[in-house]
Design a protein around this nucleic acid. Structure first.
Lengths: 200, 200
DNA sequence: TTAAATACTGTATATAATTACAGTTATGAA
DNA sequence: TTCATAACTGTAATTATATACAGTATTTAA
């Protein structure tokens, strides 16, 4: 944690637990009471320190005007997807890209690292990161992230009906993938809403 | 929602949003200001009504002593598990059992409905609900919920090593399942920590 | 070694906030 | 019709709370 002293960490943890338990933050006096301070000002000093270190927000004048600064974990980058589990499972997360570091972050649930060359004619190359929105409407013509029998693949959705889904690679060396969702296990993980390529 | 009037619902939603946005609940005056009340007592009246209807907790004397009563959704009961997704996916949830209705709820993440008779010698019958803890230590001898190539199964964990996992059915008609986790897709969904059987 | 930061005590005060009491008006159920 | 509930206005008092100022002692980085 953000170079807090051990005492500051205790106070910080207490505040978090209070919010969790009560639904609202403690007052200076409540903090002082729990830690045995004889003055609420001891708590005030701690709050100022915790604010300075960037882990708390303090709204001046507001009673209990304390909130936890939630760290920007960043948008996860998914590398290889392990079978049999959710795509966003911890073990699939290669790293995270802070949303503040990227203009392409609004409506992006995760980035998926592209494997293979099946989409090169759509300008999507191996190792590119495609930005995926999980909730955007899946529709004909959009580039979708599909899961067929637990295999994750990125393709253009060519057509969709209750008995036939056609996924089209954007590479003339490959042929269309036809799936019957009634007999095969098909799900959509999301829609491609952007692309990142790092030349470094 | 708990037969709230439309006005009460507005107030309730506002309080939820405030907590979400600020990290702490609003005061009576803040509510009054937003809704155009000329007296904080109008907000007080609403809070009393919302408390009476069971959707808010009010701590008397405490500033901003408002919290949302979180409804007990209950512990999910998992019926058939669809392949290719997380076991707790919405579509697998058969129903929910309120934790308050059951002494067997502490440390239970979900109940899984048992299919087949492979565990009858351990007293686990078809249609029983086994209580599953997702985080309990997976260890030799415990009854585990395993996922092998996307098939969910309940078995006793007989032995475990990096190259061989042995899962034992508790029924002499069946033989042990041996899995190589390096070549097959094996994961543990949790440990059986209890059992429910409804005779009704 | 010296200033800054940490971790408090102790006092005091302005103001933020709860909440009671007394009303008004409107609506719908018994 | 009459009573309960809902949705407020208006006033006011008690208490809850933030927070400044003045100290003390100890530890830590420059």
């Amino acid at each position: 944690m953000n170079n807090l002293t051990s005492r500051q960490f205790e106070i910080f943890e207490f505040i978090k637990k209070e919010i969790e338990f009560n639904g609202y933050p403690p007052t200076r006096s409540e903090i002082a009471k729990v830690f045995g301070f004889k003055s609420p000002n001891a708590a005030e000093d701690h709050l100022k320190a915790l604010k300075k270190k960037g882990v708390l927000n303090i709204v001046s004048g507001a009673s209990r005007g304390i909130s936890i600064v939630k760290e920007d974990l960043g948008i996860p980058v998914i590398g290889l997807v392990n079978a049999g589990g959710p795509i966003l499972a911890q073990e699939n997360i290669e790293k995270r890209i802070p949303s503040s570091q990227n203009f392409l972050s609004h409506g992006v649930d995760f980035y998926l690292r592209v494997r293979g060359d099946s989409m090169i004619e759509a300008g999507i190359l191996e190792n590119d990161l495609i930005a995926v929105n999980k909730k955007a409407q899946i529709k004909k013509g959009s580039i979708v992230i599909a899961r067929i029998n637990d295999e994750v693949t990125v393709k253009t959705l060519k057509s969709i009906s209750s008995e036939l889904v056609v996924l089209q690679p954007e590479n003339s060396d490959y042929s269309n993938i036809e799936v019957n969702p009634k007999t095969e296990d098909l799900s959509f993980e999301g829609t491609c809403v952007g692309l990142l390529r790092d030349f470094s």
